[in-house]
Design a binder for these strands. Structure first.
Lengths: 110, 110
DNA sequence: GGCATATTCAACCCGATGGTTGACGATCCG
DNA sequence: CGGATCGTCAACCATCGGGTTGAATATGCC
């Protein structure tokens, strides 16, 4: 009964989780490597990854001892469509977007 | 220190609040009229409107006894850009979007 | 087998969130 | 003025969310 939009938007509401998604945009990463730049515990990051996984935004796959995390951008589609329905926003300037992501990432990790 | 994306995404994570935004997409509404289709108390709806206002998604203006609520779609811009940066999603089919909004609204109000 | 690494689980703490009810302030109207 | 309508405020309650720490599980390596 719980709407998928609920879990996606709730997952995106946390800056740590958005930072994780931004990192995974570059490449798949092991859980330990995801956690490395943050000051909080590994268990906390593991929980965040669980929230992201529940929302369908990342998948995790064990390979040996290491669990690899992959971004699943398709899970954003419904939410993106929902938001765009409220206004025609400018096409995205990808360079500006990357600068923004990096600044948000830096601000989150400090 | 709290990111505007935090409050916008958090505001969108609740189905009641998304339903309110969908209603305001049609036209400005008085608080009492916003609350009418829901089963919860007027005070609860007032709180939801407060959350939406804090996120910049609606503004409220008193005119006589009545407080009018207006959608502020510009507040969605940064969040929409953020999401689109993760994938090039199809252009929005507005008819399909409206059908979706209506179905979500109905599901939320029942 | 035994130790080190990678990750999660479980219990706990605390502040935030979503709801309620009842009182209150503001405004219109007769 | 007095009463009705509109909306918020305040107090309270239950649940959720994000963090911690410590133990447990799973795998790799010697």
């Amino acid at each position: 009964m719980t709407n998928p939009l609920d879990s996606v938007f709730a997952a995106l509401a946390d800056p740590t989780r958005r930072a994780i998604l931004a990192m995974l945009l570059e490449d798949d990463m092991a859980v330990t490597d995801v956690a490395e730049p943050f000051t909080m515990s590994l268990a906390a990051i593991s929980k965040h990854l669980g929230v992201l996984a529940d929302a369908g935004l990342v998948t995790r796959e064990r390979r040996g001892r290491v669990i690899w995390c992959r971004l699943e951008p398709d899970a954003l589609r419904a939410a993106s469509v929902w938001m765009q329905g409220f206004g025609q926003f400018d096409p995205v300037d990808l360079d500006a977007f990357e600068r923004f992501l990096k600044s948000e990432l830096d601000a989150t990790i400090e």
